[in-house]
């Protein structure tokens, strides 16, 4: 079995164990959130040894070269010497500039950073509050339009971060941010490619950014955005999206209601956004598809979009993890 050296100690890994699990077993406090390689919260750095490819899969090229890796998905074959990255390498400072309720359960958080963040609309950042709790949120803002970073926070039952943001966080308070991360964003240079954007609930956040980025880039191909919600009250930014649809002939906005009101609300389609979207677009060959929301919808829609002809590398996803519902470690 391989072993890891960390903070002057050496620990042998148990069979099948990840580096994160091993460090927890040996009483090290490593920040984590998703535990599946998505959120980058647990990022550490290699000193010596060879990393398994999977432990760097979600990282940028520069990060890989500097030896960053994700201990939650790292099952090494050889001994590794590792270190926690210096905090300043990963986290920067931001200040809350606005908290606004958008729907009963979604609020908009705007942040300003001391130094500008270079990002693409649709990527995600990690927020860390004073006690070390970390959560990921997608960027609805577009660098060329918005000075502030905009995030849509869905309040989850029992969600420590989301409830705190929506109820307690006040303008002027500081937050640490890490990022940008992820590859779910508008890719320029193909102005004629048709785009299908599907999101449920606060999954609209990255899509709202991607859409405005695409339009501002002069995208000419058709863009169809399907926003799904159970209730009409859960739909937000309807006016903004309708205005964009009016101003841009190639953009169509479709609201979908999966609950009882489906069909009763003028202008909205009845059914789940992914079901309606894929029924209205049966041939997706040559399309780029963006899927944002909870993992089961993202997984199902990804398979259906692929079977409808979209190439797998043209299906970009932002799957929200239900981090607050996970079993908490040792408490």
């Amino acid at each position: 079995m391989a072993a890891i050296s960390f903070a002057g100690e050496r620990h042998a890994l148990a069979a099948g164990e990840t580096v994160l699990e091993c460090l927890e077993r040996t009483d090290h406090e490593i920040p984590f959130s998703c535990r599946n390689g998505t959120c980058l919260t647990c990022m550490m750095r290699l000193r010596t040894g060879t990393l398994p490819e999977a432990s760097q899969a979600g990282l940028r090229e520069g990060q890989k070269q500097q030896g960053y890796f994700l201990p939650c998905v790292c099952r090494p074959n050889v001994d590794l010497e590792i270190e926690a990255p210096a905090d300043a390498e990963l986290f920067g400072r931001a200040m809350v500039s606005e908290v606004t309720q958008l729907t009963l359960s979604v609020c908009r958080l705007r942040l300003r950073t001391a130094t500008p963040l270079f990002y693409h609309a649709g990527q995600f950042i990690n927020l860390r509050r004073g006690d070390g709790l970390v959560r990921s949120y997608s960027l609805a803002s577009v660098p060329r339009f918005d000075d502030a970073l905009e995030l849509h926070v869905k309040r989850l039952a029992g969600g420590r971060m989301s409830n705190w943001i929506c109820h307690e966080l006040a303008v002027g308070e500081p937050l640490d941010i890490q990022g940008p991360n992820g590859d779910c964003y508008y890719i320029g240079g193909e102005p004629d490619r048709p785009l299908l954007l599907i999101g449920n609930g606060s999954g609209l956040a990255p899509l709202y950014g991607i859409l405005r980025d695409a339009l501002a880039d002069g995208h000419k191909g058709p863009i169809h955005l399907y926003h799904g919600s159970r209730t009409a009250m859960g739909l937000y930014y309807g006016d903004e999206l309708q205005a964009l649809a009016k101003a841009n002939k190639n953009f169509q906005y479709v609201a979908c209601l999966s609950g009882d009101e489906g069909g009763a609300v003028p202008g909205a389609r009845a059914g789940r956004a992914e079901t309606v979207a894929l029924a209205e677009h049966r041939d997706l060959s040559g399309w780029r598809v963006y899927l944002c929301g909870y993992p089961p919808m993202v997984q199902t829609a990804k398979k259906l979009a692929f079977l409808a002809g979209a190439a797998l590398q043209d299906i970009l996803t932002d799957a929200f993890e239900l981090r607050d519902l996970r079993r908490l470690r040792r408490d």
Partner: peptide, 10 residues
Amino acid sequence: VDLFYRKVLM
């Protein structure tokens, strides 16, 4: 690869 994978999945 995509053509083949699609056939298998269907």
